[in-house]
Design a protein around this nucleic acid. Structure first.
Lengths: 235, 235
DNA sequence: GATTGTAGTGATGTTAACATTACGACATGG
DNA sequence: CCATGTCGTAATGTTAACATCACTACAATC
């Protein structure tokens, strides 16, 4: 975030980006529940813009997997089934595997410091929603440190869905989440800083497994070896 | 392609999809070289549609990584640098790794038969461009057999770029490409059908390495062990 | 003479009106 | 009473005109 010496390219964003951000935040805030319809006229009226930018924003949210749309049937907020969550888990596992290797191989010390800062912010989180935001921000930092544009884009394609997934998690057990998660990320940073690939990969895997288990019901958070999330029950 | 018993949902596509297909094909045909500008008015005039669908199509192509666009600066055809190719190789390696495991675990016999058919079509390819199309189609079939929506989407996000990459390859050595590649895919199908994970993963890795080596210059196509493409020289 | 200010131009961004489509309600016929 | 056909409505798809922006060339100033 706060780089020193280098100036940000100072890009100017269009209305579509703004609209996409607002709608995304509205979804995460619960204004639009999963399965709800996102009508173009309604959004354009509420945000006081024309339907063009709204259309473009919806297309962008579709790219993020936050929204599904069909021909002449409009856009609806994505509803995550159990197979969806399994897909997210396995794909995220594969992407993170590459990301961690990249970080250990090529990341600068500043990059890892940025990850550390993201982990710091988690401890100041009071609210469940805020904790989720910090969690996502942490992984954002990891992918940023990987210095791999396409990998980062692949992460952004599921990022919002993971956000949605974590949001349902805090409904299940917010107390446990708020307590244990910060420490978990701390150890991730330690492994990353030590450039210990094996340990880091292992920790990231168990980290994902914790989140995954809460929603699937199996509550034995220990007794985890190294099977990874590499499998998806087919439809 | 030709499923029996099940009927296709009979979707109706919009103009934007049509435009995206045309422009994509035009890029692959060399009408628009890498780095060329894609002007909205020019395209809308040539295809006899308004700028709306063109805009939407360009957004779609940007999602596929075939096009890059900046604010008020329009869209240009992506130019692949060496680091881009390295990124594509590593990300594709990771995705294919998951795909192969998924196929071996969950694919039906019909799915593998479809992959087999795709491999068949390669032997009838006479032209370099056609061979590339078959090559891509083969991998499409593999990802389809994986039965993993988000994995398939992640592949589609780099699919066109890989296509572009393979296109530059046939410029380097079309003869060798046309001869050896079909056999290579044959053995991939055999390993998949036998559900032999280790062999399949190995073969897919060397398959990627062949394509990668031709463009990077190192011409020792043998002496390949199992280092995988798991690394990217950072920028 | 190099730098800075300033229009011109050609593109993209945005808007509002028009066309087309899908879905549901209702009526009609078997 | 169920099935089929028709119509209305409310949304999306498409279009063309308008507004804004970035780049270039040129001129004025120091």
């Amino acid at each position: 975030m706060s780089e020193q010496g280098t100036v940000t390219p100072a890009r100017r964003r269009g209305l579509a980006d703004e609209v996409a951000d607002r709608v995304r935040e509205a979804i995460f805030s619960g204004v639009y529940a999963p399965g709800a319809q996102l009508r173009e006229v309604e959004l354009s009226g509420a945000l006081d813009v024309s339907r063009g930018p709204v259309r473009e924003a919806l297309l962008r949210l579709e790219r993020e997997g936050l929204v599904r749309s069909a021909w002449h049937r409009g856009a609806t907020v994505t509803t995550l089934t159990s197979t969806d969550i399994a897909e997210l888990d396995s794909l995220r596992g594969t992407l993170e595997h590459l990301a961690v290797r990249q970080v250990i191989a090529h990341a600068s010390d500043e990059d890892i410091a940025a990850i550390d800062k993201a982990a710091d912010r988690m401890e100041r989180a009071v609210d469940g929603h805020e904790m989720v935001r910090c969690d996502i921000a942490f992984h954002d930092a990891v992918y940023a440190a990987a210095r791999h544009r396409r990998l980062q884009e692949a992460w952004q394609a599921i990022r919002s869905q993971v956000h949605l997934f974590l949001l349902t998690r805090i409904g299940a057990d917010s107390a446990d989440y708020l307590d244990h998660i910060p420490d978990e990320h701390r150890s991730l940073v330690v492994a990353l800083r030590a450039r210990d690939a094996a340990t880091a990969l292992d920790l990231f895997a168990t980290h994902r497994r914790h989140a995954f288990d809460v929603l699937t019901g199996s509550d034995d958070s220990d007794s985890v070896e190294e099977p990874g999330p590499q499998d998806t029950p087919s439809s």
